[in-house]
């Protein structure tokens, strides 16, 4: 499990417990700030992620870091994207990673991993989230045993994708959620994202509401067909990335709290 470095976590819990006792602060102080990316400091950090040549965001290899010199706290998580073929898993990852994608659709073969870096301000500290986005083509997922195994192994978070103009992709979600999340003991977090929300939709708003309450899972939407270039692109995906980071962060806090209580 990708818990942030133990020591740091523990210190935070201590402070949290302390503050809770002293000042009756609420948990909100420990949540990532959603506005920070619009501040001057936030923008400076995001600038580092830009590729001047292509005006898209940069990717980083396994031997690289976006902020080489600074000693930013880094937390690493494994995110797995699941959903019917063609619903938009690969497109969503490309969107989240800020890279322009293929214009024509090719089915994904095997597993692709895209590491996405996202700086987040939590309380008074900037933390760099490294989100390893795992994308497996749905047909390879069915055909080869090792592919689903390799994907779910040590997963921290599942992102279930459906398409608003494909009712079946929505209807099969409970089954997928059951298969990937509920049966796991480390309780990975999860979220649902609907693509193609602008097109003729087969999935109704009321159905989404029902689903959210029944499954106790949040449903977000994304528009992958429009590609924004330059810094405006991060403005568009920031809410989604922040939501994911927040959920990951909360999960860790709860985990540490539990551990802390045990100790």
């Amino acid at each position: 499990m990708a818990i942030l470095s133990g020591l740091f976590g523990f210190v935070l819990v201590k402070e949290y417990v302390l503050n809770l006792n002293d000042n009756r602060w609420n948990m909100d102080h420990f949540l990532p700030s959603f506005e920070w990316h619009h501040t001057a400091e936030g923008e400076t950090f995001l600038q580092h992620l830009y590729n001047g040549r292509t005006s898209g965001r940069k990717l980083f290899g396994i031997l690289e870091k976006p902020f080489q010199s600074s000693n930013l706290e880094e937390v690493c998580y494994k995110l797995v994207f699941v959903g019917k073929t063609g619903v938009g898993k690969t497109s969503t990852i490309n969107k989240v990673a800020g890279i322009s994608a293929y214009s024509s659709y090719f089915e994904t073969s095997g597993i692709r991993v895209t590491d996405v870096y996202w700086p987040v301000k939590v309380w008074d500290k900037i933390i760099l989230f490294k989100l390893q986005c795992w994308d497996a083509g749905s047909s390879s997922m069915k055909k080869y045993n090792h592919i689903p195994l390799s994907c779910v192994d040590n997963a921290d978070f599942f992102i279930f994708i459906f398409s608003f103009n494909d009712a079946q992709s929505f209807n099969e979600l409970p089954q997928l959620i059951n298969k990937f999340v509920t049966s796991r003991d480390n309780q990975p977090g999860s979220i649902v994202i609907g693509t193609r929300s602008m097109l003729k939709t087969e999935v109704m708003k009321s159905e989404i509401k029902d689903f959210e309450s029944k499954q106790n899972i949040e449903v977000l939407t994304i528009q992958n067909s429009i590609y924004h270039s330059g810094p405006y692109e991060t403005v568009k995906v920031a809410p989604l990335l922040n939501t994911i980071c927040e959920k990951l962060w909360m999960r860790d806090q709860q985990y540490i709290l539990k551990q802390g209580i045990k100790v």
Partner: peptide
């Protein structure tokens, strides 16, 4: 355009019946 991949491949000449894995790391 990603940072790692793991793709099943049959080798047409060398191994047409048993798949290998082509694994790349950036």
């Amino acid at each position: 355009n990603c940072t790692a991949f793991d793709i099943p491949v049959f080798l047409p000449g060398k191994s047409p019946t048993v798949p290998f894995r082509l694994v790349g790391v950036c």
